[in-house]
Write a protein that binds this DNA or RNA. Structure first.
Lengths: 233, 233
DNA sequence: GTCGAACTTATTGTCAACAATCTGGTCAAC
DNA sequence: GTTGACCAGATTGTTGACAATAAGTTCGAC
């Protein structure tokens, strides 16, 4: 084939995003081996690019790098997922608190708008738009809080949760359970009640933790997982 | 000539720890350039090792990596230091809460012991042993909580704070201010009062934040940037 | 005397070949 | 039938040379 080989720092990003994508779409399952040569052939990049990308992903906790044995998709146990969510709870709590203190009038209005659209989505049973709004909500809160450090940590943590997020979103009755929680968060921030905002976020993520605790089996590498795309907590 | 060149993955660790050390001892100042060849000569490792170590450090937020321009020690502004401490507050709060719930009788006794020794150190004006006990306390709480994820994040955050920690500890009257806060944390955990433990940790770190806010010079702790580029010739 | 352009040097980025190591399987001995 | 050693193939780790780029410097024109 023609030598379309993407080279260098570009290649590194190609590999990194390709693996991320494959990871979140379920094309790569936890525990799966990632052979450098294979990836460099498939993606038409040099092995160096693959190596560096794998280092990046390992630093983010998405893959596990064992010396002389290569890389594999990291398995995240239910217990670890719970701990991740506990960390998210306090960090997002911090963001929500600050957002309630700092948000401008326009930002509060924007939040209220997201709340309205969430209500509508759930009413219409539109799961995918609800999930989009969900992400928007969390992103907006992080943005409004001005907490760049916390936001960075949260991005990291969420990246590790891709696998569990969509499992949860599929549970029947989940939206009707999480909607009022989301609305409570929004209301507290709009009203500028910082402690209430922090508490509301915690209530929400505590309920996520309870769902996780009810999850069967560990992060065991089921070879066959047919799962829909689309996520949300 | 004795070619003691440490090679490969070992070299990578050598570089990584050497830079960390230099960073915390003040031998390397924020903004300073890190030239690959220079480091590989000084430390007797290959340039590859240096490169990889720099990637690691960049992933941890200790150095900044600009494409085609090399690496420099990352400058952490006072504002960022405050945000880092805010994150620490909630994450350590989580750990303290769990520790209060989960600690065994022996662990509670150990904490109480640390508290006694802290009191003694401050009474004797022994700053260095107080600082050691301080680290022990935080480590013990993280350990007891079983929160591996939070602990990992905290390690990261503390790594970025080396420069400021050093400065804060030197402020006169600081120990007599922080001692009662530490004792309050210990007491809450020993008594198993989870909410109080979380609150006590927050009080403590809020006071650290107030110290940071009173730090002069918004930018780097010392005026190194200017002397870097402009001074000579 | 100052500004700008070409040149030189210092430094990082890339690559492909080579070396070291691990995995899995085969075969012989007990 | 099971255990152990050994061999072959696959995979990662390392290296040094080379290419690409940015910074610094000199020289000439105005």
């Amino acid at each position: 084939m023609a030598d379309n080989r993407v080279t260098g720092q570009a290649g590194r990003r190609v590999v990194s995003t390709a693996i991320r994508q494959a990871l979140s779409s379920g094309d790569m399952v936890p525990g799966q081996r990632l052979v450098e040569q294979e990836l460099s052939d498939t993606l038409s990049v040099t092995r160096s690019s693959v190596r560096e990308a794998l280092q990046d992903l390992a630093a983010e906790g998405l893959v596990e790098l064992v010396p002389r044995r290569g890389a594999r998709v990291r398995v995240i146990s239910v217990e670890e997922a719970i701990q991740i969510t506990e960390c998210r709870a306090v960090l997002e709590g911090l963001c929500a608190r600050r957002a309630a203190e700092l948000a401008s009038a326009e930002e509060r209005a924007e939040l209220a708008g997201i709340g309205d659209r969430m209500r509508a989505s759930v009413a219409q049973g539109d799961l995918s738009s609800y999930s989009v709004l969900n992400r928007q909500l969390h992103a907006a809160i992080a943005e409004m809080s001005g907490q760049k450090v916390a936001d960075g940590l949260l991005e990291r943590l969420k990246g590790q949760m891709v696998r569990y997020q969509f499992r949860l979103a599929l549970r029947p009755g989940r939206p009707s359970q999480s909607l009022p929680q989301h609305l409570a968060i929004i209301e507290a921030i709009v009203l500028g009640d910082a402690p209430a905002a922090e508490a509301a976020i915690r209530v929400h993520l505590d309920s996520v933790i309870r769902e996780l605790e009810a999850t069967p089996g560990g992060g065991a590498p089921d070879a066959h997982e047919d799962e829909l795309e689309g996520a949300g907590t």
